[in-house]
Design a protein around this nucleic acid. Structure first.
Lengths: 190, 190
DNA sequence: GTCTATACGACGATAGAC
DNA sequence: GTCTATCGTCGTATAGAC
């Protein structure tokens, strides 16, 4: 057995934090080496594709963790609003109350290359599907549910950007608290 | 008279486009030189503070242009909703229908240094004030107007991020079209 | 699987001629 | 005000020992 100096799970968490905080171009291999305790050559052993592969794998893994964990309450039982609020709590924890940015934001500038852009697109699609499913469950038709999901994600992304600029988490927390209204068909429309 | 190879106005427009598209760390001096036709040494003559000074001046200038031009319709005469829609048209033009990102987003990651962060914060504050003023004019009290302005800016920022990720301007255009509802006190509340 | 050492291009920035 | 030429550093990436 090979004696990993750092487990895959820890490694991905460190990488995720770096990409969230510094973006693709701001996350240098030197900083990754410092944050993980691995030398650059060891990182290339784990990720032969270099930094771009790291970013793609982080996006794929976050996509999985998002649907399987953070957004899992959406598929649970109970009333719809409570399930959305539970997912909101998980999202606030994932973004550490806006101290961290969203990878969809920080990894979608051209620096990351096409593979990174594509992985970001896939992660967004999975997130939108999860939001659209509960919107549809609340009574919206498919198209309206997709649009509501997009608007809800945009509210979170915008809240994160504004919170980053102002240094105040309020804008992000407002977006989280607004999720039930954004995703549930109002009784008046049903 | 010194024979400027490129006028200040043109220079700032090129710089703005680069920072919007590539972010702070993605905008290298080599790319700036190529986009402006100036050599790197000439850029340092115009901006002794280097890239950081360029980013700060772009943010200050965009802050001015935003309030004096793009958001000018908000201070004009006519009904409130029409003035907001006119400002929305200008914003859509400035962001080229989401083909360009917002500097508040692309320049607010740590790479830019404290001076850039501070300039971004100032630009945000000016924008929020312009939005809050018309919200207040529509009948909101000061606190509610400030919060509505923040929510409106967040909607635009989120729309730009989502549009960048999806490659589709729809999310951004939705946010623009939503501005009247976000900024005007509903008759029911007045 | 991890390391030390290194290649080499791109980066921001400067010197000095015109 | 602009240029050519250059500096030193940091970037990604690789070779090869253990």
């Amino acid at each position: 057995m090979p004696a990993l100096k750092i487990q895959d799970d820890d490694l991905f968490e460190r990488l995720t934090g770096l990409f969230q905080t510094l973006g693709y171009e701001g996350t240098s291999l030197a900083k990754i080496a410092q944050a993980t305790g691995l030398e650059k050559a060891s990182l290339y052993h784990r990720f032969p594709g270099g930094k771009e592969q790291m970013a793609v794998m982080v996006l794929e893994r976050v996509k999985e963790a998002m649907t399987a964990q953070a957004l899992a309450p959406l598929k649970a039982s109970g009333d719809l609003a409570s399930r959305i609020r539970a997912a909101g709590v998980n999202l606030a924890a994932f973004y550490q109350n806006a101290r961290r940015s969203c990878l969809l934001d920080t990894l979608s500038l051209p620096g990351g290359g096409p593979a990174v852009r594509e992985a970001a697109h896939q992660a967004y699609a999975a997130w939108q599907n999860a939001f659209a499913a509960i919107a549809q469950e609340s009574g919206m038709e498919q198209g309206a549910a997709a649009q509501a999901a997009q608007k809800a994600i945009a509210a979170i992304e915008g809240g994160l950007v504004v919170s980053r600029v102002t240094g105040n988490p309020q804008a992000f927390l407002d977006a989280i608290n607004q999720l039930p209204q954004l995703l549930l068909a109002s009784p008046l429309e049903s």
